[in-house]
Design a protein around this nucleic acid. Structure first.
Lengths: 347, 347
DNA sequence: GTGAAAGCGCTAACAC
DNA sequence: GTGTTAGCGCTTTCAC
């Protein structure tokens, strides 16, 4: 029979040109919307495109332009709700602007990060979004040499645009919330899955609020990623010991929920005996069973600004020194905080 | 020394060829590991590559081969823990096999799905992974015409390889668990974010277990995505009415947690007054505060099989009719289920 | 307004 | 074993 069931070869620009009885450069010009083309020609081309179901070959275009409309997104851990919620926003805004995204989950491992970046750059991504940055010097060198613009969202580096929540202020507000409730012994507990820079800023905000209230600081760190142990002291000591705290500000919601779990296990009531404030406001935090007071990061806004900035860099609309855009975050009071109550059971 | 700070143009295969005093095809042959090349030549080429910091231009390779090493991944909602946990596994296995992934969040909207697929296909993805499939006929037509292999993970279609948990059996086990505990009035509640096909299978498993125990079925649906209302009856009626249930099997963990919230609000104790079983075993379910009995989907296994199958299709190792691979899932008993207790408060 | 022609950097026949 | 050559499908000067 004359026509095989499926045309294995998709139509090319040449097919369109032939059908429209016109040269392929003119077809190209029509497609790219260059002006200075007769309406009649334009119509003929569009008709031919229609008839053939022609779609420009992105690969060929990328090859000649040596650039893509793809953004590389470096993520710390896609299974972490904060990252996945951010990733969703990034994908959403990128695709709304005509860009596709390639995700790369690094587990905040420098070697994975480097390999992932190399691969993304091999694919000639037009820009990079770091949702987490392991801070590797090799990575920095690689990206800088590639001259691909980078945006750091919710993380930090001095060699690209930074879009971040006001971590220091958020931490201050969180800590102040506990102080205002009447807490005096308040610890800051850092979760390793939080970016170093963000962690520093949040610790600083905590320390500043505590200093202002003339209260002693106590900074603790979770040991390992899903360890239920602290580096500096046992959880029991922190929550039940002589110097036990009545308020905790966690560097992120996941860490705060970890503490919630510990408290439950030790029969410490939240918020009666222990108040907890998280950071991020992941979906989880809003669940009735969790009901965590937290500092909400405006994820949609962060993503929007990051994508807008990055695309401006790509197109060249924006040039010059690195931008550092800080957006406000705000306290969401839920059920995990209250004025300090009576002595915890067992003391 | 003589080298400029940044070579704006990356080295091409021609540069390597010149430096190694060899033709570019030979360089190409060396790079692609074709055998039948003198060791001396091979060494010279590698040396030149090293010196120039040469990296093959993926875009050019893709262009000539008219194919990429990119997988398109269609996701229902990246902010949904089940999807993001699956997405992580998919990305992991794909990158381990040398493939990059392009994610596309469709919100299970047919139009978004179609647009996303069109775009992925424009980029000549080598294969498609559907983590969710809206079941659009246009989408089907588009992908079939493109001849790009598709794998449906955790969802269903008759025009690609399917990798899925044994939803029907999982549901039977979940329901049987409740029956074994002594429950008699057990409802199935479907969450709209669950794929239709999976929902059907789970409902069927539930019905079968109930039928076997000669118990009446009661199938309910959440209204809207984050609605706290059911289609068929009020939550209060289901949980507190004369015909109230003592056991619920939810089509996914998120829906189960929703019910947990409702129960808490209505002062219904779980598991004393109400037992709940979920499906998926998202990270959330394991939190002490949630502590949900559930059917665990083996996400890592599902992803691995899907990627392996898809890549076999891509390379042509696998051909012929669509595969339908079903993997076992298993009951994880936690604290949300127990034998039915006394009458719920207020009755 | 439109078209001819020169690539983009690579792969893959096919000569030598 | 190695080199020559002809594209892949498109963009983009630059003539006409």
């Amino acid at each position: 029979m004359a026509s095989p069931p499926e045309p294995a070869k998709p139509a090319t620009i040449l097919d369109v040109a032939r059908l429209a009885k016109i040269s392929k450069s003119t077809v190209s010009n029509v497609i790219r919307g260059r002006d200075g083309i007769a309406q009649a020609t334009r119509d003929r081309v569009h008709l031919a495109i229609e008839q053939l179901g022609y779609r420009p070959n992105v690969l060929a275009r990328q090859m000649v332009q040596q650039k893509t409309n793809v953004l590389g997104v470096v993520i710390g851990d896609l299974a972490n709700p904060f990252y996945s919620e951010m990733a969703k926003q990034i994908e959403h805004h990128a695709s709304a602007r005509g860009y596709r995204v390639m995700f790369c989950d690094t587990q905040i491992d420098k070697r994975l990060e480097l390999a992932g970046l190399q691969s993304l750059l091999d694919y000639r991504v037009a820009g990079l979004v770091f949702l987490a940055y392991a801070g590797d010097a090799e990575s920095e060198k690689l990206v800088k040499e590639s001259r691909v613009p980078a945006a750091f969202v919710t993380c930090m580096a001095d060699w690209g645009d930074v879009v971040s929540a006001d971590d220091e202020k958020g931490a201050r507000v969180a800590t102040q919330h506990l102080i205002d409730l009447g807490h005096r012994r308040i610890a800051y507990i850092a979760d390793p899955s939080v970016e170093d820079a963000a962690d520093q800023a949040r610790a600083a905000g905590y320390s500043r609020a505590m200093a202002k209230a003339a209260l002693p600081t106590r900074i603790l760190h979770w040991q390992g990623v899903d360890g239920r142990a602290l580096l500096e002291a046992s959880v029991e000591e922190v929550l039940l010991g002589a110097e036990r705290v009545t308020g905790i500000f966690s560097s992120n919601d996941l860490g705060a929920i970890e503490i919630l779990d510990c408290a439950d296990r030790l029969n410490i009531r939240v918020p009666e005996d222990l108040s907890i404030v998280g950071f991020d406001d992941v979906m989880l935090a809003g669940l009735r069973r969790i009901n965590l007071t937290t500092i909400a990061q405006p994820k949609e806004v962060l993503a929007r600004i990051a994508i807008t900035t990055l695309i401006s860099r790509i197109t060249g609309e924006l040039s010059g020194g690195n931008l550092r855009q800080i957006v406000e975050c705000n306290l969401v009071v839920r059920g995990s905080t209250a004025p300090p109550g009576e002595q915890p059971p067992g003391s």
